[in-house]
C-alpha cells in the first residue's frame, strides 16, 4: 500500500468515527429528552453513567488526528481535515455533555413531579436531532450549502428557546411554589439551545474545511 493510500484510509476511518460519534450524540439527546418526558430516572442515570464513553471517543479521535499530524506532516486540505476532526469531536463531546445535563435535570425533577413539560422542549430536541443529520451529511459530502442550512435551523431553535423562556417566566408567577422545577425546565431548554449552537460550530468547521477560511454562520 502506498503511503498516500494508507494516509487516505486513515483519514476516512477518522471521518467514519466522527460520523458514528455524531450519531451517538443524537441518540443520547433523544434518550435524555425521552427520559425527561417519561420521568424515567433509571434511563437518566444510565445516560449520566455512560458519559465517559463520549469523553473516550473524543480522546481517541484527537489522538488519531495528532498521530497523523506528527507522522504525515499534512498540509492544505489534509491539514484542515485533521484540524476540524479535533474541533468537531470537541463539539460533539460538549453536545453529549448537554444531553447528560438534561438527564441530571430529569433526576432533580424526580419521578413524582406533576408539572407539565413544555412540548416546545421536544420540538427543540427534534429540530436539534435533524440538525445533527444535516451536519453529518454536510461533513460526509463536504456540502457547504447544507452547512449553511444549519444556521437557519439554529435560528428556529433560538426562537423556540425564547418562547419556552417566556412561558416559564409566566409559570413562575402563577406557580411560585414550583420554582425549583420550573428552573430545571429552563435549564433543559437552555441545554438544547447550546447543543444546537455546537452543531452550528460543526457547520463552520465544514465551511473551513472546504473553503480554507473561517466563516461565522451566525452572521
Amino acid at each position: 500500500m502506498t503511503t498516500r493510500r494508507f494516509f487516505t484510509e486513515e483519514l476516512n476511518e477518522l471521518q467514519v468515527k466522527i460520523a458514528e460519534l455524531a450519531e451517538d450524540t443524537k441518540d443520547v439527546l433523544k434518550k435524555s429528552v425521552d427520559a425527561l418526558f417519561e420521568k424515567d430516572i433509571d434511563s437518566a442515570q444510565s445516560i449520566i453513567d455512560n458519559d465517559h464513553f463520549f469523553n473516550q471517543k473524543e480522546q481517541m479521535i484527537n489522538e488519531t488526528a495528532m498521530i497523523l499530524i506528527a507522522k504525515q506532516q499534512p498540509v492544505a486540505t489534509d491539514l484542515r481535515r485533521l484540524i476540524i476532526a479535533i474541533k468537531i469531536s470537541a463539539d460533539l463531546e460538549r453536545m453529549a455533555d448537554h444531553a447528560k445535563n438534561i438527564a441530571k435535570s430529569t433526576k432533580r425533577l424526580g419521578a413524582h413531579h406533576n408539572i407539565t413539560i413544555n412540548p416546545e422542549i421536544r420540538e427543540m430536541a427534534n429540530l436539534a436531532m435533524g440538525m445533527v443529520d444535516i451536519a453529518k451529511k454536510a461533513y460526509e459530502t463536504e456540502d457547504i450549502s447544507l452547512a449553511k442550512e444549519l444556521a437557519s435551523n439554529d435560528d428556529k431553535i433560538d426562537e423556540k428557546y425564547g418562547e419556552v423562556t417566556r412561558e416559564l417566566l409566566e409559570e413562575t408567577a402563577n406557580n411560585p411554589q414550583q420554582i425549583q422545577h420550573i428552573m430545571q425546565m429552563a435549564f433543559t431548554s437552555r441545554y438544547i439551545e447550546r447543543y444546537a449552537d455546537h452543531i452550528t460550530n460543526i457547520g463552520e468547521s465544514i465551511f473551513y474545511l472546504v473553503k480554507g477560511v473561517s466563516y461565522d454562520l451566525n452572521d
Binding site: R4, P74, V75, A76, T77, D78, L79, R80, G212, V213
Partner: peptide, 13 residues
Amino acid sequence: TNPKEQRTEEYLT
C-alpha cells in the same frame, strides 16, 4: 494551508 490551485493541492498532499 489553502492553495488556490488544484494542482498545487494535489502535489502538496
